[in-house]
Amino acid sequence: MGNIITVQNLTKRYGDKTTVKGISFEVREGEVFGILGPNGAGKTTTLEMIEALRPIDDGEVTLDGLDVQKDAAKVKNIIGIQLQSTAFFDKLNLREQLRMFDSLYGETTDPDSLLAEVQLTDKAKSYVENLSGGQRQRFSIAAALINKPRVLFLDEPTTGLDPQARRNLWDLIRDIKKKGITVVLTTHYMDEAELLCDRIAIMDGGRIITINTPANLVKELIGRGFTKTQQVEQANLEDVFIDLTGKAIRD
């Protein structure tokens, strides 16, 4: 599999503060690539530069052979973006929202089939402001899929969701991957990264510290002689919660 995204020496400065310090990495076609890191590590800024939403101060990003800075318009046509602060117009129902975005791309995606894909068929006539957190994230992903993108960017898609809604969203992301769409996501949840991501980049202080598969990262750590002081339980509290409340989504 070839690389669909190549990032070289990517840098972002705000005044005398450098938030992204010359990072380089590749994303392979068809994989789920995770960017992990504490708040302020530069994850969102990195994503927004790759998405042609923020000017690149230094370095180069190539997406499906296109230079992101020079061909921003072409790049926007082949990517789908779910932003951290998802904001859609108010007083516009889901079907109308999707129809509007559909016209912006000049494609002919059927809004209803897309809503069915994210299990929002019965909400077609609701406004975004009346959706629950999980529904809103699913809708946000549906809107990002309207132009049949080759790469889907998800910025902290499960932050603030209840365990059921998170599991539901994981299933959705797996379905998207099955269709051959490359997914780049950021998250604070390690279990999520471990379950969804084929490879992970860990960022801190504007730099990428390491890139590998989740399994290899764990192996590397153990290879360095790491041991946990506490015996790992066979189940954790979240398992208890899901066991007691079920997997069905509530919204």
């Binding site: 998405e51 939403l53 926007k76 998802t86 859609f88 108010d90 912006l104 990002a144 132009n147």
Partner: peptide, 14 residues
């Protein structure tokens, strides 16, 4: 609309 981020979302489109 800038404050809610609606313009930002539009900007993601062409």
């Amino acid at each position: 609309e800038k404050k809610t981020g609606a313009f930002k979302r539009l900007r993601a489109s062409p």
